[in-house]
Design a protein around this nucleic acid. Structure first.
Lengths: 187, 187
DNA sequence: GTCTATATGGTGATAGAC
DNA sequence: GTCTATCACCATATAGAC
Protein backbone atom coordinates (compact mmCIF):
# COMPACT_ATOMS: atom_id res chain seq x y z
CA UNK A 1 0.00 0.00 0.00
CA UNK A 2 1.41 3.30 -1.11
CA UNK A 3 1.86 6.15 1.33
CA UNK A 4 -0.96 8.63 1.25
CA UNK A 5 0.03 11.74 -0.61
CA UNK A 6 0.11 15.16 1.04
CA UNK A 7 -2.76 16.52 -1.00
CA UNK A 8 -4.98 13.58 -0.15
CA UNK A 9 -4.11 13.86 3.50
CA UNK A 10 -5.00 17.54 3.47
CA UNK A 11 -8.38 17.02 1.87
CA UNK A 12 -9.24 14.05 4.04
CA UNK A 13 -8.37 15.93 7.22
CA UNK A 14 -10.13 19.11 6.11
CA UNK A 15 -13.25 17.20 5.10
CA UNK A 16 -13.47 15.53 8.44
CA UNK A 17 -13.02 18.80 10.33
CA UNK A 18 -15.42 20.77 8.14
CA UNK A 19 -18.05 18.13 8.74
CA UNK A 20 -17.59 17.72 12.48
CA UNK A 21 -16.76 21.29 13.57
CA UNK A 22 -18.17 23.34 10.74
CA UNK A 23 -16.34 25.28 8.06
CA UNK A 24 -15.88 28.57 9.90
CA UNK A 25 -14.89 26.90 13.13
CA UNK A 26 -12.08 25.04 11.41
CA UNK A 27 -8.88 27.01 11.03
CA UNK A 28 -6.09 26.49 8.55
CA UNK A 29 -3.72 25.94 11.46
CA UNK A 30 -5.77 23.05 12.76
CA UNK A 31 -5.94 21.45 9.33
CA UNK A 32 -2.18 21.58 8.81
CA UNK A 33 -1.53 20.35 12.35
CA UNK A 34 -3.81 17.32 12.05
CA UNK A 35 -2.72 16.55 8.51
CA UNK A 36 0.89 16.96 9.67
CA UNK A 37 1.73 19.22 6.77
CA UNK A 38 3.27 22.69 6.46
CA UNK A 39 1.13 25.68 5.65
CA UNK A 40 3.17 26.37 2.54
CA UNK A 41 2.31 22.95 1.22
CA UNK A 42 -1.38 23.49 1.75
CA UNK A 43 -1.33 26.70 -0.27
CA UNK A 44 0.69 24.95 -2.91
CA UNK A 45 -2.19 22.53 -3.51
CA UNK A 46 -5.15 24.77 -2.76
CA UNK A 47 -5.36 28.46 -3.57
CA UNK A 48 -7.56 29.33 -0.61
CA UNK A 49 -9.68 27.89 2.16
CA UNK A 50 -12.67 28.27 -0.12
CA UNK A 51 -10.92 26.23 -2.77
CA UNK A 52 -10.47 23.53 -0.18
CA UNK A 53 -14.16 23.72 0.65
CA UNK A 54 -15.09 23.13 -2.97
CA UNK A 55 -12.78 20.14 -3.18
CA UNK A 56 -14.43 18.77 -0.05
CA UNK A 57 -17.92 19.01 -1.51
CA UNK A 58 -16.91 17.51 -4.83
CA UNK A 59 -15.34 14.59 -2.98
CA UNK A 60 -18.38 14.11 -0.77
CA UNK A 61 -20.72 14.05 -3.74
CA UNK A 62 -18.61 11.44 -5.51
CA UNK A 63 -18.52 9.30 -2.40
CA UNK A 64 -22.25 9.73 -1.88
CA UNK A 65 -23.16 8.23 -5.23
CA UNK A 66 -20.48 5.58 -5.00
CA UNK A 67 -21.76 4.55 -1.58
CA UNK A 68 -25.31 4.42 -2.86
CA UNK A 69 -24.36 2.16 -5.77
CA UNK A 70 -22.83 -0.12 -3.21
CA UNK A 71 -25.93 -0.10 -1.05
CA UNK A 72 -28.25 -0.83 -3.95
CA UNK A 73 -26.21 -3.70 -5.41
CA UNK A 74 -28.48 -6.49 -4.27
CA UNK A 75 -31.76 -4.68 -4.87
CA UNK A 76 -33.63 -5.75 -7.97
CA UNK A 77 -37.11 -4.28 -7.88
CA UNK A 78 -37.68 -0.54 -7.96
CA UNK A 79 -39.30 -0.82 -4.56
CA UNK A 80 -36.23 -2.48 -3.08
CA UNK A 81 -34.04 0.21 -4.56
CA UNK A 82 -36.14 2.95 -3.03
CA UNK A 83 -36.02 1.30 0.36
CA UNK A 84 -32.27 0.87 -0.06
CA UNK A 85 -32.04 4.63 -0.56
CA UNK A 86 -33.72 5.19 2.79
CA UNK A 87 -31.47 2.63 4.43
CA UNK A 88 -28.50 4.39 2.90
CA UNK A 89 -29.39 7.81 4.29
CA UNK A 90 -30.06 6.18 7.65
CA UNK A 91 -26.72 4.40 7.52
CA UNK A 92 -24.87 7.65 6.82
CA UNK A 93 -26.55 9.19 9.83
CA UNK A 94 -25.86 6.22 12.08
CA UNK A 95 -22.21 6.08 11.11
CA UNK A 96 -21.67 9.79 11.73
CA UNK A 97 -23.63 9.71 15.00
CA UNK A 98 -26.23 11.94 13.37
CA UNK A 99 -23.92 14.69 12.23
CA UNK A 100 -26.29 15.53 9.39
CA UNK A 101 -26.11 15.98 5.64
CA UNK A 102 -22.87 17.58 4.41
CA UNK A 103 -24.72 19.69 1.89
CA UNK A 104 -27.53 20.94 4.10
CA UNK A 105 -24.95 21.77 6.77
CA UNK A 106 -22.79 23.90 4.54
CA UNK A 107 -25.74 25.83 3.12
CA UNK A 108 -27.03 26.41 6.64
CA UNK A 109 -23.68 27.78 7.65
CA UNK A 110 -22.81 29.87 4.58
CA UNK A 111 -26.27 30.94 3.50
CA UNK A 112 -26.09 32.54 0.10
CA UNK A 113 -22.69 34.14 0.57
CA UNK A 114 -20.96 31.89 -1.94
CA UNK A 115 -22.96 31.35 -5.13
CA UNK A 116 -20.57 28.64 -6.35
CA UNK A 117 -21.28 26.58 -3.24
CA UNK A 118 -25.02 27.31 -3.32
CA UNK A 119 -25.25 26.22 -6.94
CA UNK A 120 -23.27 23.08 -6.28
CA UNK A 121 -25.52 22.02 -3.42
CA UNK A 122 -28.67 22.79 -5.36
CA UNK A 123 -27.40 20.73 -8.26
CA UNK A 124 -26.45 17.88 -5.94
CA UNK A 125 -29.96 17.69 -4.51
CA UNK A 126 -31.40 17.89 -8.00
CA UNK A 127 -29.34 14.83 -8.94
CA UNK A 128 -30.84 12.94 -6.04
CA UNK A 129 -34.33 13.89 -7.14
CA UNK A 130 -33.59 12.74 -10.69
CA UNK A 131 -32.31 9.45 -9.31
CA UNK A 132 -35.54 8.95 -7.40
CA UNK A 133 -37.55 9.64 -10.54
CA UNK A 134 -35.43 7.14 -12.47
CA UNK A 135 -36.10 4.43 -9.94
CA UNK A 136 -39.83 5.14 -10.15
CA UNK A 137 -39.67 5.01 -13.93
CA UNK A 138 -38.41 1.45 -13.72
CA UNK A 139 -41.88 0.40 -12.65
CA UNK A 140 -42.69 0.60 -16.34
CA UNK A 141 -45.83 1.35 -18.22
CA UNK A 142 -48.08 -1.09 -16.45
CA UNK A 143 -48.47 1.19 -13.44
CA UNK A 144 -49.63 4.33 -15.15
CA UNK A 145 -51.58 5.19 -12.03
CA UNK A 146 -48.23 6.30 -10.58
CA UNK A 147 -47.67 10.03 -10.90
CA UNK A 148 -43.89 9.85 -10.98
CA UNK A 149 -43.11 13.53 -10.42
CA UNK A 150 -45.45 13.87 -7.47
CA UNK A 151 -44.38 10.67 -5.78
CA UNK A 152 -40.72 11.49 -6.36
CA UNK A 153 -41.11 14.88 -4.72
CA UNK A 154 -43.05 13.36 -1.84
CA UNK A 155 -40.34 10.77 -1.20
CA UNK A 156 -37.54 13.29 -1.56
CA UNK A 157 -39.09 15.70 0.92
CA UNK A 158 -39.76 12.94 3.45
CA UNK A 159 -36.14 11.83 3.28
CA UNK A 160 -34.79 15.35 3.68
CA UNK A 161 -37.14 15.87 6.61
CA UNK A 162 -35.99 12.64 8.21
CA UNK A 163 -32.33 13.56 7.83
CA UNK A 164 -32.65 16.96 9.52
CA UNK A 165 -34.96 15.59 12.18
CA UNK A 166 -32.66 12.70 13.03
CA UNK A 167 -29.78 15.18 13.22
CA UNK A 168 -31.67 17.21 15.81
CA UNK A 169 -33.09 14.26 17.73
CA UNK A 170 -29.88 12.20 17.61
CA UNK A 171 -31.84 9.08 16.80
CA UNK A 172 -33.10 7.26 13.72
CA UNK A 173 -36.80 7.11 14.59
CA UNK A 174 -37.77 9.34 11.68
CA UNK A 175 -36.36 6.82 9.21
CA UNK A 176 -38.61 4.09 10.56
CA UNK A 177 -41.59 6.39 10.00
CA UNK A 178 -40.75 7.37 6.45
CA UNK A 179 -39.91 3.80 5.49
CA UNK A 180 -43.43 2.76 6.42
CA UNK A 181 -44.95 5.73 4.63
CA UNK A 182 -42.94 5.20 1.47
CA UNK A 183 -43.73 1.49 1.40
CA UNK A 184 -47.36 2.57 1.37
CA UNK A 185 -46.78 5.00 -1.49
CA UNK A 186 -45.20 2.41 -3.78
CA UNK A 187 -47.02 -0.34 -5.71
CA UNK B 1 -42.88 55.77 21.25
CA UNK B 2 -40.09 55.16 23.72
CA UNK B 3 -36.52 54.94 22.56
CA UNK B 4 -35.34 51.38 22.07
CA UNK B 5 -33.15 50.30 24.94
CA UNK B 6 -29.54 49.29 24.48
CA UNK B 7 -30.14 45.68 25.41
CA UNK B 8 -32.99 45.34 22.96
CA UNK B 9 -30.96 46.95 20.22
CA UNK B 10 -28.10 44.55 20.86
CA UNK B 11 -30.27 41.46 20.70
CA UNK B 12 -32.17 42.63 17.65
CA UNK B 13 -28.97 43.41 15.77
CA UNK B 14 -27.26 40.20 16.84
CA UNK B 15 -30.29 38.11 15.90
CA UNK B 16 -30.39 39.57 12.45
CA UNK B 17 -26.67 39.03 11.90
CA UNK B 18 -26.65 35.50 13.33
CA UNK B 19 -29.48 34.58 11.01
CA UNK B 20 -28.13 36.20 7.83
CA UNK B 21 -24.39 35.61 8.20
CA UNK B 22 -24.23 32.72 10.62
CA UNK B 23 -23.11 32.71 14.23
CA UNK B 24 -19.40 32.12 13.71
CA UNK B 25 -19.17 34.61 10.86
CA UNK B 26 -20.59 37.35 13.03
CA UNK B 27 -18.07 39.13 15.21
CA UNK B 28 -18.68 41.04 18.40
CA UNK B 29 -17.22 44.10 16.74
CA UNK B 30 -19.78 43.99 13.96
CA UNK B 31 -22.62 43.62 16.45
CA UNK B 32 -21.55 46.64 18.51
CA UNK B 33 -20.94 48.70 15.39
CA UNK B 34 -24.37 48.02 13.88
CA UNK B 35 -26.15 48.31 17.20
CA UNK B 36 -24.20 51.53 17.82
CA UNK B 37 -23.21 50.45 21.29
CA UNK B 38 -19.91 50.16 23.14
CA UNK B 39 -18.35 46.79 23.77
CA UNK B 40 -18.41 47.36 27.51
CA UNK B 41 -22.17 47.77 27.36
CA UNK B 42 -22.60 44.53 25.50
CA UNK B 43 -20.71 42.58 28.12
CA UNK B 44 -22.68 44.35 30.79
CA UNK B 45 -25.89 42.81 29.44
CA UNK B 46 -24.56 39.49 28.15
CA UNK B 47 -21.81 37.46 29.74
CA UNK B 48 -20.51 36.00 26.48
CA UNK B 49 -21.25 35.61 22.81
CA UNK B 50 -22.81 32.26 23.64
CA UNK B 51 -25.11 33.93 26.13
CA UNK B 52 -26.22 36.24 23.34
CA UNK B 53 -26.84 33.21 21.13
CA UNK B 54 -29.14 31.70 23.73
CA UNK B 55 -31.07 34.94 24.07
CA UNK B 56 -31.45 35.01 20.30
CA UNK B 57 -32.94 31.52 20.16
CA UNK B 58 -35.30 32.15 23.06
CA UNK B 59 -36.54 35.29 21.33
CA UNK B 60 -36.98 33.51 18.00
CA UNK B 61 -38.98 30.73 19.59
CA UNK B 62 -41.30 33.21 21.31
CA UNK B 63 -41.80 35.09 18.05
CA UNK B 64 -42.36 31.85 16.16
CA UNK B 65 -45.33 30.83 18.28
CA UNK B 66 -46.67 34.35 18.48
CA UNK B 67 -46.52 34.64 14.70
CA UNK B 68 -48.26 31.33 14.31
CA UNK B 69 -51.11 32.36 16.60
CA UNK B 70 -51.53 35.38 14.39
CA UNK B 71 -51.56 33.31 11.23
CA UNK B 72 -54.13 30.86 12.58
CA UNK B 73 -56.54 33.49 13.91
CA UNK B 74 -59.17 33.10 11.22
CA UNK B 75 -58.89 29.33 10.87
CA UNK B 76 -61.69 27.39 12.49
CA UNK B 77 -61.48 23.79 11.35
CA UNK B 78 -58.48 21.60 12.21
CA UNK B 79 -57.82 21.27 8.51
CA UNK B 80 -57.65 25.02 8.04
CA UNK B 81 -55.30 25.29 10.99
CA UNK B 82 -52.97 22.70 9.52
CA UNK B 83 -52.93 24.46 6.18
CA UNK B 84 -52.29 27.72 8.00
CA UNK B 85 -49.22 26.11 9.54
CA UNK B 86 -47.87 25.34 6.09
CA UNK B 87 -48.67 28.84 4.92
CA UNK B 88 -46.87 30.19 7.96
CA UNK B 89 -43.66 28.29 7.31
CA UNK B 90 -43.87 29.33 3.67
CA UNK B 91 -44.40 32.94 4.68
CA UNK B 92 -41.35 32.88 6.95
CA UNK B 93 -39.29 31.58 4.07
CA UNK B 94 -40.67 34.11 1.59
CA UNK B 95 -40.06 37.02 3.92
CA UNK B 96 -36.47 36.01 4.62
CA UNK B 97 -35.79 35.25 0.94
CA UNK B 98 -35.37 31.60 1.88
CA UNK B 99 -32.77 32.04 4.58
CA UNK B 100 -33.98 28.87 6.27
CA UNK B 101 -35.10 27.80 9.73
CA UNK B 102 -33.23 29.52 12.58
CA UNK B 103 -33.06 26.32 14.58
CA UNK B 104 -31.94 23.98 11.81
CA UNK B 105 -29.34 26.54 10.81
CA UNK B 106 -27.77 26.84 14.22
CA UNK B 107 -27.63 23.08 14.74
CA UNK B 108 -26.06 22.67 11.31
CA UNK B 109 -23.43 25.20 12.20
CA UNK B 110 -22.66 24.17 15.78
CA UNK B 111 -23.26 20.45 15.56
CA UNK B 112 -23.27 18.99 19.02
CA UNK B 113 -20.63 21.29 20.48
CA UNK B 114 -23.06 23.09 22.77
CA UNK B 115 -25.48 20.76 24.56
CA UNK B 116 -27.55 23.66 25.88
CA UNK B 117 -28.24 24.81 22.34
CA UNK B 118 -28.83 21.27 21.03
CA UNK B 119 -31.34 20.58 23.77
CA UNK B 120 -33.13 23.84 23.18
CA UNK B 121 -33.53 23.18 19.47
CA UNK B 122 -34.67 19.61 20.06
CA UNK B 123 -37.25 20.83 22.54
CA UNK B 124 -38.42 23.54 20.14
CA UNK B 125 -39.08 21.02 17.39
CA UNK B 126 -40.81 18.75 19.87
CA UNK B 127 -43.18 21.62 20.73
CA UNK B 128 -44.05 21.97 17.06
CA UNK B 129 -44.78 18.27 16.83
CA UNK B 130 -47.01 18.44 19.89
CA UNK B 131 -48.85 21.35 18.35
CA UNK B 132 -49.48 19.35 15.21
CA UNK B 133 -50.84 16.48 17.27
CA UNK B 134 -53.11 18.88 19.15
CA UNK B 135 -54.58 20.19 15.93
CA UNK B 136 -55.22 16.64 14.75
CA UNK B 137 -56.85 15.82 18.06
CA UNK B 138 -59.41 18.55 17.43
CA UNK B 139 -60.95 16.34 14.75
CA UNK B 140 -62.57 14.56 17.65
CA UNK B 141 -63.71 11.03 18.17
CA UNK B 142 -65.75 10.70 15.00
CA UNK B 143 -62.65 10.17 12.85
CA UNK B 144 -61.09 7.27 14.69
CA UNK B 145 -59.63 6.13 11.39
CA UNK B 146 -57.02 8.86 11.89
CA UNK B 147 -53.80 7.58 13.43
CA UNK B 148 -52.82 10.85 15.04
CA UNK B 149 -49.20 10.04 15.89
CA UNK B 150 -48.40 8.68 12.44
CA UNK B 151 -50.10 11.47 10.55
CA UNK B 152 -48.49 14.08 12.81
CA UNK B 153 -45.04 12.67 12.15
CA UNK B 154 -45.75 12.49 8.43
CA UNK B 155 -46.84 16.12 8.31
CA UNK B 156 -43.97 17.30 10.47
CA UNK B 157 -41.35 15.58 8.33
CA UNK B 158 -42.86 16.92 5.12
CA UNK B 159 -42.76 20.45 6.47
CA UNK B 160 -39.16 20.15 7.64
CA UNK B 161 -38.22 18.71 4.26
CA UNK B 162 -39.97 21.55 2.48
CA UNK B 163 -38.20 24.16 4.58
CA UNK B 164 -34.70 22.84 3.90
CA UNK B 165 -35.47 22.20 0.25
CA UNK B 166 -36.88 25.68 -0.30
CA UNK B 167 -33.78 27.08 1.40
CA UNK B 168 -31.55 25.28 -1.07
CA UNK B 169 -33.72 25.89 -4.14
CA UNK B 170 -34.53 29.51 -3.24
CA UNK B 171 -38.15 29.00 -4.22
CA UNK B 172 -41.37 27.89 -2.57
CA UNK B 173 -42.28 25.04 -4.90
CA UNK B 174 -41.89 22.44 -2.17
CA UNK B 175 -44.63 24.09 -0.13
CA UNK B 176 -47.11 23.76 -2.97
CA UNK B 177 -46.31 20.05 -3.11
CA UNK B 178 -46.70 19.36 0.57
CA UNK B 179 -49.88 21.40 0.80
CA UNK B 180 -51.48 19.12 -1.76
CA UNK B 181 -50.16 16.02 -0.04
CA UNK B 182 -51.30 17.11 3.40
CA UNK B 183 -54.74 18.07 2.13
CA UNK B 184 -54.98 14.49 0.92
CA UNK B 185 -53.92 13.12 4.30
CA UNK B 186 -56.58 15.00 6.24
CA UNK B 187 -60.28 14.16 6.41
C1' DG C 1 7.14 20.36 -3.32
C1' DT C 2 7.78 21.10 1.29
C1' DC C 3 9.55 23.87 4.72
C1' DT C 4 9.93 28.16 8.32
C1' DA C 5 9.07 32.77 9.25
C1' DT C 6 6.21 36.47 8.91
C1' DA C 7 2.55 39.97 7.48
C1' DT C 8 -1.79 41.95 8.51
C1' DG C 9 -5.93 42.18 10.52
C1' DG C 10 -9.62 40.24 13.28
C1' DT C 11 -11.23 37.46 17.50
C1' DG C 12 -13.71 37.30 22.19
C1' DA C 13 -13.05 39.23 26.45
C1' DT C 14 -11.41 42.43 30.41
C1' DA C 15 -9.96 46.77 33.16
C1' DG C 16 -10.90 50.79 34.84
C1' DA C 17 -12.29 55.91 34.03
C1' DC C 18 -16.44 58.62 34.07
C1' DG D 1 -24.49 51.65 32.69
C1' DT D 2 -21.80 53.28 29.13
C1' DC D 3 -17.46 54.48 27.63
C1' DT D 4 -12.26 53.87 25.65
C1' DA D 5 -8.14 51.37 25.68
C1' DT D 6 -6.02 47.22 25.56
C1' DC D 7 -5.14 42.26 26.22
C1' DA D 8 -3.59 37.68 24.37
C1' DC D 9 -4.63 34.93 20.79
C1' DC D 10 -5.99 33.21 16.21
C1' DA D 11 -7.42 34.01 11.38
C1' DT D 12 -5.96 33.55 6.27
C1' DA D 13 -2.43 34.23 3.30
C1' DT D 14 2.42 35.22 1.37
C1' DA D 15 7.74 35.21 0.81
C1' DG D 16 11.55 32.99 0.13
C1' DA D 17 15.11 29.34 1.74
C1' DC D 18 16.17 24.52 0.88
Amino acid sequence: MKKEKAKDRIIRTASDLFYRQGFNSTGINQIIAEADIAIGSLYNHFSSKNDLLQAYLVKEEAEWFKGFEDQIKNSNSPKDKMLALIDYRKKLQDESTFAGCHFIKIISELGDSSPVISDFVKSHKEKQKIMIREILTQYGLETKSLDIDSVAEHIFLLIEGAVVTSTIDKNADAFAYIKKIIQGLLP
